[in-house]
Amino acid sequence: MDPVTIDTTKISTIKKKPQTALEKLEDTGLIHTVLSAKDRKGLILLTTVDQIFNWARLSSLWPVTSGLACCAIEMMGVAMAHHDIARFGMEIFRASPRQADLMFVAGTVTKRMAPRVKQLYEMMPEPKWVISVGSCSNTGGPYHESYSVLKGVDLIIPVDVYIPGCPPRPEAWLYGVIQLREKIKNEGYGAKWGINK
């Protein structure tokens, strides 16, 4: 059953004075998971459910351990004490894709490795997200002219966030993670299934 949608253009965009407790909370801007109807892109009925789901999803993303090349060393650097990805609830790198919901494509995807990367993505349960890290997996990077390198991982799997750099600094990496969290925050029910984005 498709969720009911409402035309957002009819909703008044003039900001009202916060009345209810929820509106007041929203007005403070402190609780980032509470979104206005406009941001939800037309889905009103399931907002609260969405908020809870999205909050839970973005707060404990479990990446799959799939280092491919140089960026994998930086991935270890991000996970370790100095940069500490545990601040985002992501420190549990899962060895099995069945238990993960995020995939860092960290490094050069060669034509030989591409089917395995795709298989790894397909083995992950929904909902799942992909961050392409580094020039190599974004576009082929310095190996763009090579005969054996895939020119961007987005040719085989959908990518949510691209992080440039060769390899990206940990700060850039964490910024990419924050961008993904923003993206998940604004997802409506079933966005990952292609209904009601």
């Binding site: 490795m113 395995r116 190996y143 002219e145 054996s148």
Partner: peptide, 14 residues
């Protein structure tokens, strides 16, 4: 082997 073969030696010629 070969899952990370990036053709570095061939690229050197270019």
């Amino acid at each position: 082997l070969g899952y990370l073969h990036r053709g570095t030696e061939k690229l050197a010629e270019m």
